[in-house]
Amino acid sequence: MSAEQEKRAIRCLVAKVGLDGHDRGAHVIARAFRDAGFEVVYSGLHRAPGEIVQAAVQEDVDVLGISILSGAHNTLVPKVIEGLKEYGAFEDTLIVVGGIIPDDDKAELKELGVAEVFGPGTPMEETIEFIREHVPERA
């Protein structure tokens, strides 16, 4: 039916990877995304990179937001990206990282395919606006 309305929603996975147990930030982000009209899948704490990949692939998210406060981003993020590539899900997933990331590492993460890194104090509107602008146009 040509008249049937297509109803799209931005789907996000908010993911906590590794041993870091601080999820207040991830909760705040998840709620802000919800209020922005996104559909947010929250991973829960202490996820292995493989679990994040499984969730991102099966949930077919537009955006993967990884929250890392443990400093292990250089080990964990590449593993997630590798996994996404394995399932052909890297190309059209917008990957953003939030947490405490030194500037040198930021450049490296971006080189790997992370679209943006948001540090502490980033206004929520900025993150949401970035996602709205950069969410992959999928057919």
Binding site: A9, A30, R34, D35, A36, F38, E39, Y42, E59
Partner: peptide, 15 residues
């Protein structure tokens, strides 16, 4: 469930 106001949702079952 989804929000009747924004249409957004937190999908928490996967946890």
């Amino acid at each position: 469930p989804s929000s009747p106001y924004t249409g957004g949702a937190v999908l928490g079952d996967r946890i």
